[in-house]
């Protein structure tokens, strides 16, 4: 997994609550057997018109957000299905950070497995970021996972909470399976004491 230490990037605001994983990656694209290449299908039904062209109304298609790598979202982002195709699509499209007041549990967890940092901030802080993104053209944020800070060039400085274990895994780009297998003897011991042969 790619490590995540610091990231500075363009912010795209997505002012919608309850964005579900069916919108992030519609089901017709779940038939692929690879982990890669999902970015082209990200937000497909919102992003493209019936004729296949870009929907100019959709946030990601606006020229000022071209190249955005930080998604600013509203509450309960990523609700619904457990499909990891959702973070795969966001990551493949180019996102490294998602900021929202709340995330659905499975989606939140899936992000960390793919080198992407989901950040929970309180509603007021998220509202402030939306206001700043509207005020400053080409609004950029810098995220430092080591120091747990978010800063901009206009005096903003925030700290955020993240579970220590997940933070360390992301900083080091650690593979969960390899980590767990360091304790394989404990698994074997568990199986032996529980009659699992």
């Amino acid at each position: 997994m790619q490590p995540f230490t610091q990231h500075t990037g363009l912010v795209v605001p997505m002012d919608r609550v309850d964005v579900d994983t069916d919108q992030i990656i519609p089901k017709q694209f779940l038939k692929r057997i690879e982990r890669t290449g999902f970015g082209q299908f990200l937000f497909f039904d919102w992003r493209f018109l019936e004729n296949g062209g870009d929907n100019p109304e959709f946030e990601l298609n606006r020229p000022e957000y071209d190249g955005a790598s930080i998604l600013l979202a509203r509450r309960n982002f990523g609700c619904g299905s457990s499909r990891e195709h959702a973070p795969w699509a966001l990551e493949d499209y180019g996102f490294r950070v998602i900021i929202a007041p709340s995330f659905a549990d499975i989606f939140y967890n899936n992000c960390f497995k793919n080198g992407m940092l989901p950040i929970r901030l309180d509603e007021a802080a998220v509202n402030d970021l939306f206001a700043r993104a509207a005020k400053y053209q080409g609004y950029r944020l810098s995220v430092d996972l080591e120091r747990r800070t978010i800063t901009d060039q206009h005096g903003l400085s925030l700290t955020f909470e993240v579970d220590d274990f997940r933070r360390q895994c992301l900083l080091d780009g650690l593979d969960d399976i390899a980590l767990t297998l360091e304790h394989e003897e404990k698994i074997t011991e568990y199986e032996q004491t529980h009659g699992i042969v």
Binding site: I106, N109, K113
Partner: peptide, 13 residues
């Protein structure tokens, strides 16, 4: 429910 990375984790461990 779990994501695919976790499916792999359970398969392996």
């Amino acid at each position: 429910g779990i994501g695919t990375s976790e499916v792999e984790h359970v398969l392996a461990t």
